[in-house]
Nucleic acid binder design. Structure first.
Lengths: 413, 413
DNA sequence: CTGTTAGCGCCTTCAT
DNA sequence: ATGAAGGCGCTAACAG
């Protein structure tokens, strides 16, 4: 039988992981974080993939090893030099026929070189090329958390555009820490990327911001391009989302739909994105004479789990006087939705809910989520275009507007 | 008013985008793909973020430019040489005090160097370091589509682990094309990464596989590590998910829950992941004397939209004889769920549904999705550990098992 | 412990 | 059109 107890004791899978753990890193498997996440959803049961019933010949969840003709791993990659020698031409000719821009090389030689390269499995060493010509073809992208659909959509846009421009993308995660962000920027600068894109909310009154700006400025002064995605607080080219106007529009739309009593779920007060959206929402309500008082604003993590938790807080506070909850982003809204559902509160029957971003799954939850649509992939694309466009003597700011999307989570009332 | 017509004509946002489009790339904004996606969900209405009502001073959705003291962008980054000179020491000393492993340098000199570096905003050129010491500190990760939560979770695991090991991750997307995958591997090899991780389903009978294996083998023979995530078809270290057993377990669990009449949604028959899961599921049913005939297997895209479309196909075929639908992955299952919902079919009342993977949002849809849990972040982590572990004379295969998670989408019946 | 000097793999004038 | 040689930024022997 499949019982909750099995899951909560988390014995089931751990044993499997233990076996498959890489020596020396064993402790990493002791308490897999993904198991911890299960705690707030106790209405599920887990079956141990029925191994007990399938006495498979091959042991599962373990690490197998068998002989393989492994080559001496000391050999190093073929170099241009090797190719030139193999083709019986000079280094310069090889270089020219393989990567040189203006083809001024005898077709026969060229063919010989290409053949030799093919034979040797030659791939130009990008680092060497970078250092020789003094410029790379990489884009460095910094996001808060790639597992968050907001960022993964933006990243998809960035990567897609970058690739079609022949650029390689390197990515780093700040885990929403300003310190880490600064540190990452420093590290990434070492790559001498052509472009450095910083995605993720800016912080208010950030003391590290000075250092960050300094770092980014230095990068820009030495030929790099930086693009910020989110707020226009930093003095660099920016793709900005109009959080304030979007939230305001949403508020007004909700009022138009008949809602009168609001609550809001926000992230840390230091996150500008959260702040702007809340203030915009407030302003929209105020325009219709509705005051969103502080006791109706719950602050939690800017994440799905934060939203889930906030739902609990709100329930504790009492929801009798509410008819709709606005979460400053979709993942929070969806988390809250699950929270309400697990608490037996009907959405949207008892409480309507709205978010912001229009992440991919917003339309797949039930009820489908009312939100402010942001064309996330295009934001990423716009960032690349901005970076690759000619650099004017001035700063460029692209403002992307949101569009309110009313869905089933906020029915007319 | 906000009416569907506004959305379908897609005039609303396009005008905004037009303004914010980067010159020369205008056409990219002509028909934003994200608008196209709206078509199959006609039960929503979009408001134009009320700009008509807010005569804001600053024009929205446009590109602003204003003067900025832009430095001559010709300057190049400070080099170690510069630092050494500035500090009045030799190149070697500077190198040693900044990056050298064993600190064997006079504390006073060290301080001087560090100060000079700070003053000059020096950052070591990673390319130069790479080429000088003959090894980089990057991990190249290839995924099908980073916007897919399955891959973004794996990527998060990879990035997190890599970063804590001091490695930088570069990422590329195949968009599920075998050709592109091969091409990307060739390009990425040029980075001379320490590790090359290939994520995403393998293909059956892939004619390009030979070339891919050749490329990867060459990479490995010259000191690189390659790790495959998915199937064990390729002769390299692998983190494998036991798709067959997981799907089989799910099938048996569903039978145990009282289900008797099944349908399945699969991806392209060339995708091993899809194939394995289907065959496992079939086997699980067969064990209980249930035959999943071909007319009950719908083949579509391995994506959310594929699932959505398949729901339509299934409805057209008729669902009277079905009581549960198994989709070979969660995004398809969730897409199908939306498809059924939009068609007015009650899930799970009329039709139950189950997926595979346990992506983050599986528990947030309503009803929460029954699935086979895969510890995705840990898969990414395991890949890094495998790659960074000592290289044995043999191939390593880590098999990650799934655990059936029964949720509300498949109530006992 | 510090400085000098070769390279690392490649591109790019500069002659030829 | 081709080849020889210098240099990109840095590290790693090697002397001192």
């Amino acid at each position: 039988m499949c019982v909750i107890a099995r899951l909560l004791s988390s014995r089931v899978d751990r044993s499997r992981f233990r076996e498959s753990a890489i020596s020396g890193l064993y402790q990493l498997y002791q308490a897999p974080p993904w198991e911890a996440k299960l705690e707030h959803n106790t209405s599920e049961s887990v079956c141990p993939a029925l191994e007990s019933e399938s006495p498979s010949a091959r042991p599962r969840g373990s690490r197998h090893r068998w002989r393989r003709p492994v080559a001496e791993p000391g050999r190093s990659p073929a170099t241009l030099h090797d190719v030139a020698r193999e083709a019986g031409v000079s280094l310069a000719t090889a270089s020219r026929s393989l990567n040189g821009s203006t083809r001024k090389v005898n077709e026969e030689y060229r063919a010989r070189v290409v053949a030799a390269a093919e034979r040797l499995g030659y791939t130009p060493n990008l680092s060497a090329q970078a250092i020789a010509k003094g410029s790379t073809s990489t884009v460095a992208l910094v996001v808060s958390d790639i597992a968050d659909p907001y960022f993964s959509s933006i990243a998809a846009g960035v990567i897609r555009s970058a690739e079609s421009a022949g650029l390689i993308v390197t990515m780093a995660m700040t885990e929403r820490s300003a310190e880490r962000e600064l540190e990452l920027v420093k590290t990434l600068r070492g790559q001498r990327p052509r472009v450095l894109i910083l995605s993720g909310s800016r912080y208010v009154g950030a003391e590290l911001e000075g250092a960050l700006v300094k770092e980014l400025t230095a990068f820009e002064e030495t030929g790099g391009r930086v693009v910020i995605i989110s707020q226009r607080e930093l003095p660099f080219d920016t793709v900005q989302t109009d959080n304030h106007a979007g939230a305001k529009a949403l508020a007004e739309a909700l009022v138009a739909e008949g809602y009168r009593s609001f609550a809001a779920l926000t992230g840390a007060s230091s996150l500008m994105t959260s702040r702007d959206r809340l203030s915009g929402f407030r302003e929209g309500l105020a325009a219709h004479g509705i005051d969103l008082t502080d006791d109706r604003v719950m602050q939690t993590d800017f994440t799905r789990d934060g939203g889930y938790a906030a739902a609990g807080q709100l329930i504790e506070r009492g929801i009798d006087d509410l008819d709709v909850v606005f979460a400053v982003n979709d993942v929070m809204a969806i988390g809250a939705m699950s929270g309400f559902r697990d608490a037996g509160i009907d959405v949207p029957g008892r409480l309507a809910i709205a978010g912001f971003d229009d992440i991919l799954t917003a339309r797949d939850v039930t009820p489908a989520l009312t939100t402010v649509r942001l064309p996330l992939e295009h934001v990423g694309q716009a960032a690349i275009e901005l970076a690759l466009g000619e650099r004017g003597g001035s700063r460029a700011v692209v403002t992307v507007d949101g569009a309110v999307v009313l869905r089933a989570s906020t029915p007319r009332r």
